[in-house]
């Protein structure tokens, strides 16, 4: 089973469900890309590159989701 570490927690994906890209992962998680900052293995990924950022099993991802208010 393939694993991604998302915000410090390991998430397992069954065969065929592993997201190929960061955009696919956000879609699976139901997170709106416009309100998220993402780091993959410690590097910031700009939103315009979410769809072409490929994910590999074992990768570490930080997703910061913003809610309105300030």
């Amino acid at each position: 089973m393939d694993v991604l570490k998302i915000n410090g927690k390991e998430k397992e994906f069954t065969a065929g469900q592993f997201p190929a890209t960061l955009a696919e992962l956000l879609e699976q998680l139901g997170v709106e890309a416009a309100t998220v900052v993402a780091e993959v293995d410690g590097d910031i990924v700009e939103r315009e590159n979410f769809a072409r950022t490929r994910l590999a099993p074992g990768g570490s991802i930080e997703l910061v989701r913003f809610v309105p208010g300030g």
Binding site: V37, E39, I44
Partner: peptide
């Protein structure tokens, strides 16, 4: 205030203004 603007500036500072840190709120 708006989530999209929070996203914009955090992304901009992290991607284009190294080594500057940003302190953000959600």
């Amino acid at each position: 205030d708006r989530a999209q603007e929070k996203q914009m500036i955090v992304e901009t500072v992290l991607a284009r203004m190294s080594p500057k840190p940003i302190v953000s709120v959600s």
